[in-house]
Computed example of a mutant assay.
Amino acid sequence: MKILNICAYTWAIGGPARIIYDHTAEALKNGHEVTILSPMSPGDKMYEAPEGAKLVPCRRTTPISSIYREFSLDLYKYLKNHMHEYDLIHIHGIWHFGSLAPFLIRHNLPIVITIHGLLDQWAVRHSKWKKDLVTFLYQKKILAKADVIHVNNTDEVNDVVRYLGFKPKNLVIIPNGMKFDEFWQMPEQGTFRARFSLPTQQKMILFMGRLNIKKGLDLLLPAFAAYHKAHPDSFLVLAGPDDGYLAETQKFIVENALEQSIHLVGMLTGSLKKAALGDADLFVLPSYSEGFSIAVMEAMAARVPALVSDRVGFGEYIQKYDAAYLTPLTVQGVTEGLFTVLQNEALRLSYPPKAYAMLKENFEISVVAKTMLTAYESAMTGKS
């Protein structure tokens, strides 16, 4: 099978790139060929591709791409010239040009669309006028034409039904998976703190993700300020690229005199990201909307206690296994969560083993990837 993935495959995009990497690696092991077609801008850092995969970067076309996400004439030209070489197209996400482009070219290839949480009510309300326009022009029509609509959980099923007004027959639920063995060996304790000259005896709270309001930073920042006022032996690390909320974050830090207690370290990758997880006392992500948070899965794989919302994509699993502290999406709720978890060591240390068991039993990539490949094969059979 020759598979073409379409996604902004950069470090800045976060979870989807990691998901594609892991699924691609498994597809290659099973004898398939995989190409990743990625719109990009000058300065973007491309995510690494598994050995044997083909990565095709396509320049975003400015200034249109600043208005219409991922718009790229190069991407369209590549599809026009090479679509016939593939057996199946897998589109990651909606609302962007890459999700439309294959439908502008005459073909008979099966198409899989992964929603990645982008029909969540919070996500739909964000930039609503643009999404209303895209919905009116084509979004519902192309979802109806997809051979497989892939979602991660029952919440996303409800999102799709609410958006389309009916439950499509081609809807499949496949959770995201991960390869967990890379977290078996972690950097030496204290490596990250030493790198950034952070206190060695204080509790380190780690947020890892794009600096975007949807990640719940408007809740986390005041919640941390309240906790830190009562317990100054703590600090917060914000690790991730700016995605619209850096200026607001910096303003909050200055206005609350937290320059020595909130540290912006930018995007972390590779061993440095693992070092940050290894040094953290608590991982936090009070997100309003996630398709299926890879950041939370990585923290749990690294055995870091976590405080998250139930909107991270697998809240029902977390609740079932009691794998993390599930916080309400309010400042008071996050504040109470910080006090509860950080001031109760027995509770905090009870989460990692349960979280790791949850991951191994439900989200091992080798099992999940085979389910996805089966969905591909069904889509191809339906086209033949």
Rank of each mutant, 00 (worst) to 15 (best):
I213K: 15
G165S: 07
L219G: 01
M186Q: 06
R210C: 05
A230L: 13
S197G: 11
D233A: 10
L133V: 11
K169G: 06
T191M: 09
D132Q: 15
T135W: 01
H228Y: 12
P232Y: 06
Q202P: 08
G165R: 07
T200P: 08
N152V: 10
A144N: 09
P168N: 01
L217T: 00
V157T: 10
L220E: 04
V172S: 04
K215H: 06
G165A: 08
E188M: 10
N212V: 14
E156I: 07
G209Y: 02
N170Q: 13
G177F: 05
Y163T: 00
W184G: 14
L198H: 03
H150Y: 04
E156W: 05
R210Q: 11
G216T: 09
Q185N: 14
F196V: 05
K141P: 03
V161R: 12
V157I: 13
H228Q: 14
L217W: 00
V157C: 10
F224R: 00
L217M: 03
I205Y: 00
M178P: 10
W184S: 15
T135R: 02
K141E: 11
R162S: 14
L220Y: 05
T135L: 00
E188Q: 14
T200H: 15
L206A: 05
M204T: 07
D159I: 02
A226C: 08
L206W: 03
D233P: 02
V172C: 07
D147A: 09
M204L: 12
V148Q: 01
G177H: 07
A144C: 07
L221E: 00
D132K: 15
I205P: 00
K141A: 12
N176Q: 10
K229C: 05
D181S: 15
V172K: 08
H231T: 05
Q201F: 13
W184N: 15
I173W: 04
N176V: 04
T154E: 15
L164V: 02
I149W: 01
R193M: 03
N153T: 04
Q185W: 12
F196L: 06
R162C: 09
S197W: 08
P199C: 05
D218M: 08
V151C: 09
S197D: 15
K203I: 08
R195Q: 09
G177V: 06
A223P: 02
Y138W: 13
P187A: 01
H231P: 01
S197Q: 13
R162A: 14
K140L: 09
V151R: 04
T200L: 14
N170T: 11
D181M: 11
S234V: 04
K169S: 13
L164C: 01
D233E: 12
K215C: 03
Q201P: 11
L164I: 01
Q201V: 12
A194D: 14
N152I: 09
K169P: 03
K215Y: 04
Q189A: 13
N152K: 14
Q139C: 05
